[in-house]
Write a protein that binds this DNA or RNA. Structure first.
Length: 293
DNA sequence: AGACTAACCTGAAAGC
DNA sequence: TGCTTTCAGGTTAGTC
């Protein structure tokens, strides 16, 4: 679920649930490496606080608190952040402003053994739930004025990427261009789906050594990264491998995919190539051998 | 520094 | 049917 577009969609959904509301209680699971800040500390620091804003950088969310501290959140591979009573699947696949039917509200995954953080508020309204099956997600409390090494080493947000950045970063790299795009220290926010989609859009094969890119190709890849990410945000992000809703209407970026997880299918652009799959840097990669060079 | 691998976890799906 | 293997949208620590 979580690359830049999904995190941004989540951010927008979470803002009204969090901003301006006073935290009355904090419920957690037992200590695990999900908690960069131990649960007990988290409870002490968050109880009584009001969130003033929720920002995003790459795949990280940053909630600013009224005492100057911040909370850093990462969804990892399976993290979901949503309000109690509303299905997160519905949230991620719906377009902004869509209303929820009673059945959909009832389908909300309530707190369970994978709900590692739950915030209750003093207005008695909906709780904020953070579920994460695989626990690759992270939550950290940052003292006022303090940063975090995870944040410090991120490159610029991928929505602001330009050809010059990719050109500079690619010059000394012999590794595949796909690996470059996934390096959060170069640009923050692109993950496996959107790396494949952007490279497809730019006609660049993901296996190509980064340093073999021309300047013009860097410009094109940058344009495609921005286009693909913005379009995905517009459509509510991707929910591949999530179930299809009973009523059939799902929307979402997974329907606009050209390459990712289309192994063996006909290329939608040239209509002759067949989408190939290869492992690059430990991640499965998808491309058209005929029109990506 | 850059490039690879393994590891962190859980669950669904495919393979036998 | 049931057991085993493979795979998954991410990041980090360790090695060469």
């Amino acid at each position: 679920m979580p690359e830049l577009p999904e995190v941004e969609v989540t951010r927008r959904q979470v803002v009204p649930l969090l901003v301006g509301r006073r935290i009355a209680a904090v419920h957690t699971t037992r200590p695990s490496y999900f908690f960069v800040t131990p649960p007990a500390t988290l409870k002490r620091r968050l109880t009584g606080r009001v969130t003033t804003a929720v920002a995003r950088h790459g795949k990280y969310l940053l909630a600013a608190l009224d005492d100057g501290a911040r909370v850093l959140l990462h969804l990892g591979m399976t993290g979901q952040l949503y309000g109690s009573g509303v299905s997160s699947v519905r949230l991620l696949s719906s377009t902004a402003g869509a209303t929820l039917s009673p059945e959909e509200q009832e389908s909300a995954p309530g707190p369970d053994r994978h709900t590692h953080l739950r915030l209750a508020f003093d207005d008695g309204g909906r709780d904020l739930l953070f579920r994460d099956t695989r626990k690759f997600g992270k939550v950290a409390w940052l003292a006022p004025g303090a940063s975090d090494p995870r944040l410090d080493k991120l490159g610029p947000d991928a929505l602001g990427v330009d050809g010059a950045l990719l050109w500079t970063a690619s010059r000394r790299r012999t590794a595949p261009v796909k690996t470059l795009l996934l390096d959060q220290g170069v640009l923050a926010g692109v993950g496996n789906i959107y790396a494949d989609e952007a490279l497809f859009g730019a006609h660049v094969r993901p296996t190509r050594s980064a340093r073999r890119l021309t300047r013009a190709e860097c410009d094109l890849v940058a344009v495609e990264i921005r286009r693909v990410l913005l379009r995905s945000i517009e459509t509510g992000g991707s929910s591949i491998s999530d179930y299809v809703r009973p009523d059939g209407s799902d929307g979402g970026y997974q329907d606009e995919r050209q390459a990712y997880a289309r192994t063996g299918e006909r290329c939608l652009r040239c209509a002759e190539g067949v989408i190939a799959r290869r492992v690059i840097g430990g991640r499965s990669s998808h491309y058209c051998p005929r029109c990506q060079h």
